[in-house]
């Protein structure tokens, strides 16, 4: 609308460029652009340092203990970072939004119940939960998604509930009731469209949280199962050799750092653009 050109004018070029480079392009095109097979061990080239640090252009970011190409592994790892964050956040946002809408709209006992559950999820250490679950079922893709949803749905539920509480008292909702609109119609046509901006901003800001969470779980060995080259696993791989072969942990770590930083910067810009009210949050 009228705001779009202004937003384009202030488009945060740098974070978007970094994200494209580190996360999105590798995730989509890893099979094509990765110089090597991420699983193939070039045993003769074990622990090759990166280019400019005594290495060669064949393995730009060096190799690990088994001679696997770090760059290719990071590129393939991006795919898992992206998929996990997207799936986890979309599911978390849906669960949180639906429960938040119900809590804020129905109020009373239902509201109290949902909000206490949110409090509990915030109080429970998510890593311990993941450890407990992983010890029962073993690490898996589904487990990571489950933990992600568990950790983030409460943020959505809280924010959506707060806005629903305000919106339901607005005169346009009263007018909809006077027109005979059902509760479902009011939620769908009057309340949800007015909080969708908030949800989008919140979702963007959660990407960073989720990527770090996923990396932490993988690092601890309860996230994405090996041999998938998840970023957290890549960092973990290099931890015994951090002094001698620093690059094994360093570059995956940089990928995580750059991604999280860019996503948060992007989220802040998006927030300023979409909803000036949220600036203080």
């Amino acid at each position: 609308m009228a705001n779009t050109p202004r937003f384009l004018g202030r488009l945060p070029i740098l974070p978007i460029a970094v994200l494209m480079l580190v996360l999105v392009m590798p995730a989509l095109l890893a099979d094509v652009i990765a110089p090597h097979d991420p699983f193939k061990a070039y045993l003769r080239n074990r622990l090759q340092p990166p280019l400019f640090f005594g290495g060669t252009a064949e393995f730009i970011l060096g190799t690990d203990r088994l001679g696997r190409d770090i760059l290719s592994r990071i590129m393939h790892g991006a795919r898992y970072a992206l998929v996990i964050s997207l799936v986890g956040i979309i599911l978390g946002a849906i669960v949180g939004t639906v429960l938040g809408l119900i809590a804020g709209y129905v109020r009373g006992v239902v509201d109290a119940l949902i909000m206490r559950v949110v409090d509990i999820t915030f109080a429970l250490p998510s890593i311990l939960l993941a450890l407990a679950l992983a010890s029962v079922s073993g690490p898996s893709f589904q487990l990571v998604i489950l933990v992600v949803v568990f950790v983030i749905w409460g943020f959505f539920a809280r924010q959506v509930r707060a806005e629903t509480l305000i919106l339901r008292e607005r005169d346009f909702v009263a007018r909809a009731r006077v027109a005979g609109a059902s509760d479902i119609r009011i939620l769908r046509k009057y309340i949800l469209p007015n909080i969708i901006n908030t949800i989008v901003v919140l979702a963007t800001l959660q990407i960073g949280v989720v990527i770090v969470l996923e990396a932490t779980l993988s690092f601890l060995g309860i996230g994405i199962p090996r041999p998938i080259p998840a970023w957290g696993l890549l960092v973990a791989d290099g931890r015994q050799l951090i002094v001698s072969s620093w690059w094994i942990s360093f570059f995956p770590g940089m990928a995580i750092l750059l991604t999280v930083l860019s996503v948060n910067m992007l989220g802040d810009s998006l927030r300023d653009w979409l909803d000036p009210k949220l600036r203080q949050v």
């Binding site: 607005r170 005169d171 346009f172 009263a174 007018r175 909809a176 006077v178 027109a179 005979g180 609109a181 119609r185 046509k189 009057y190 469209p193 007015n194």
Partner: peptide, 27 residues
């Protein structure tokens, strides 16, 4: 039907005039 005080609060910012005006008949 009803008309409320504040014309800024009584129209949903996310609906077009057509949908706002038609609502009672649509329902």
């Amino acid at each position: 039907q009803a008309v409320f005080q504040d014309p800024w609060a009584s129209l949903s910012p996310r609906m077009r005039v057509f949908d706002i005006v038609a609502e009672t008949l649509v329902i």
